[in-house]
Amino acid sequence: MIGQLFLIAGAALLLVAAVGLLRLTDPFQRMHAATKAGTLGVALMLIGAILIDDVARTSTGLFTILFLLLTLPVGAQLLGRAAYMSGATLDQIECDDPLAGVLDRQQAPLSERLDGTEPEEQR
């Protein structure tokens, strides 16, 4: 019973993450929703699967959770820094950016610099 609640909570968190991926306005905010809320949702679902007892192997599930939680911040930090340096769009960067001058930042996102087209409409 508790396992099933965990499964439902995890799936709900994944759905929220997907909605956030669609609704938020720049890559950094989307990363908060997708990478983190999404991974935590998967971790919840794994806990649920472990608690439902006809799924036998507990060690694989625990190991997967451990691996996800260990690698998630590393990936998020690398991806965030790379996105910042490559000039991905960032809301409210004009008013206050303590990173300016610390890290090199390109003026336009990579995709626009590669093909030289007009910036696409931000959704």
Partner: peptide, 13 residues
């Protein structure tokens, strides 16, 4: 690591 693991905050640098 801890700040990057919480949703809503990412350590960039």
């Amino acid at each position: 690591y801890l700040t990057s693991l919480t949703p809503g905050s990412t350590c960039l640098h």
